Structures are given as structure tokens and as C-alpha cells.
Simulated scan of single mutants.
Amino acid sequence: MASMLSFSTIPTLGSSSSSSRASFPSRLSSLSLSHRSSLCKSVVKCSYAEAGVKDDFRSATIDVVADVKTERVVVLGGSGFVGSAICKAAVSKGIEVISLSRSGRPTYPGSWIDQVTWIPGDVFYTNWDEILFGATAVVSTIGGFGSEEQMQRINGEANIVSVNAAKEFGIPKFIFISVHDYNLPSFVLSTGYFTGKRKAEAEVLSKYPNSGVVLRPGFIYGKRRVDGFEIPLDLIGQPAERILSAIENFTKPLSSLPASDLLLAPPVNVDDLALAVVNAVTDDDFFGVFTIEQIKEAAAKVKV
């Protein structure tokens, strides 16, 4: 996707107007830090070697160094379990990443962490002009448990607010991390957690019919950090994924039974989910609702 940055404020090189030359620094200083950072990353820098012969154009060489990223992704909830994996995967693929989350920058070490712009904030009160400037995609990992009211607000309203903000700002793509329904009975799916997620899904698909992405993973495993401690969910998830994948042909007839997927739906590695998101960011033909198996297929494409 092409960068959304406009160069209308940059004066023409070699302009004879002193006022034009002075206007760019003053305009640059008036921009916010995040805007200046994005602008500087999109400007092509040139260094000129001094010519030995005054009128010989061949003796003047130009060394051009471009520092331009084609994708700029905003990850909502980027410091969480899933969000941090997405940030890490995106950075590894050369994507510029901005994270918005209540906790801001993670406290644990990691070289990739320094390559992410960490912004503490809440989607209900954030300055979207600052967050979405120059973005080519928004990824939301927002979700959680609590009372019925809390789950409706976190899983539904918070994501709906984010989708509408992205749409109004002209962001081309929105990617939402939702949840597999596990073939649960309707009375369970009517709880705040699932209804909130499904309302958010509907908003994504409505506002982004040709570029919105909804990923529906089941149990997500990996090394999860909680209050400074690392919980190795992969010790459970990885063997379960291998076993369920191996016996998939035998368990398919049982998939129509109510709540059967609580036991039969294969877990998803958090790194695979992150790579599926990267695929969604970079592939314009990747949109719609994606199941567990489709998430793994998308991740495999990026691995290759």
C-alpha cells in the first residue's frame, strides 16, 4: 500500500524564495513528535559529493539513501499477549508499528521492543489524529472478561469505536482478532463476551466490506507474561495442537455436536496468529472471516 503522507508542505529544492525555505522548519516544528517521526522516515535523504570541476556535471555524484516503510500498522492492545506477538512479527517483516494500550511500553527486555512506538492510552479517550497519522492498517486485539456490562464495553463498544475512527480517518484496512464459537449453544453465545465480539465483527465487515479481516482463533498458546512471570501455555497447547491435527479426520463427524469444539478445536500458536495478521496487512486480497485452519494457512504463506 502506498504511504498516505503528503509532501505538499515540503518546499522545492533549489527554490529562490527565502520565505519558502524558512517555512519548512517552522512547519516541521509545529508538528507533533509522532508526525515529525513519520515525516522524516518518508523523506528521501541526499548527500552531494563536492564537484572537482565547476562546470562538469559528471564530476558531481549523488548518494541517495531512502528510509521509507511501505506499511505503517497501529496495533490496539499491542503490549498484551497477542498484541506483543503481532508487534514483534510485524517489526521482523520491516513494518513500522505503533502500539496503543493502557500499559504502554512493556517492561521486559527485547531488541524488537525498541523498534515499536509505544503509546499509553485508552481507545475511548485517545487522540486518533496522533495515533492514526500515516497508518495503512489498524489491528485490534482488544478483548477481555468481566461482568456482562464490562464484556459488552471491552469486546464490543471499544472495538466499534476503533473501527469507526479508522474508517473516518481513511485507513484502508482493519484487522480484528475475534474468537472461535466452539459450537457452543445459543444461550452461552448470548453472553457479553461473544455478543460483544460478534457486534465488533459486524462493524468491521460493514465498514470494510472489501478489506476488513476477522480472525477467529480458538485457544491461543505461547509464553504469556503476567505480572512479571512467564506462563508457558505452549506446554499444553503445542502437544494438543499436534494430537488434534493428527486425528482430525476421525473427529470431524463429531464437530456438529454442541460444544464439541471445546475439546476438538485445535489450539493456535500465538506466533502463527501474528504471522496471519502480517499476511492480512500485506495482502490486499486477504479479507473476510477466517477460521482456525485458515489462520494457520495464512501464517504458512508468510513463513515461506
Rank of each mutant, 00 (worst) to 15 (best):
R72E: 01
V138Y: 10
F290Y: 13
G222R: 03
K207L: 08
Y125F: 01
G212T: 03
G143E: 02
S256T: 02
S206R: 13
K301V: 03
V213D: 14
P25A: 02
I292E: 01
S190C: 10
G212V: 09
S79L: 01
E297C: 04
T61A: 15
D122T: 05
Y193S: 04
R216L: 02
V268G: 02
A158H: 07
P11F: 08
S29D: 08
Y193N: 11
S8D: 11
C87Y: 00
T70V: 10
E293L: 02
V53M: 09
T9Y: 08
A60C: 14
D129N: 14
R242N: 08
G156Q: 02
K197C: 11
I295L: 13
L233I: 06
S18N: 10
E157I: 10
E201V: 11
L262H: 06
S42H: 14
A2Q: 14
T291I: 06
R216D: 00
S20H: 01
S140L: 05
P232W: 04
E168R: 15
V204Q: 13
R242P: 02
L13A: 03
Y221R: 12
K173I: 03
S79Y: 01
V68Q: 05
I119W: 04
F133V: 07
F187Y: 11
A165G: 11
V304L: 14
P25R: 00
A22C: 09
C40G: 12
F290K: 14
V226H: 15
V74W: 01
V277D: 05
L31A: 14
G134V: 14
S37I: 06
C46K: 15
K69G: 11
M4A: 04
S16L: 01
A200P: 03
A135T: 12
A300P: 04
D55K: 15
L39T: 15
P217V: 00
T126C: 05
S178R: 01
F286W: 09
W128G: 06
S19Q: 10
V73I: 05
A51E: 08
A240F: 10
G146I: 09
I220S: 06
V302C: 04
E148S: 07
H180E: 05
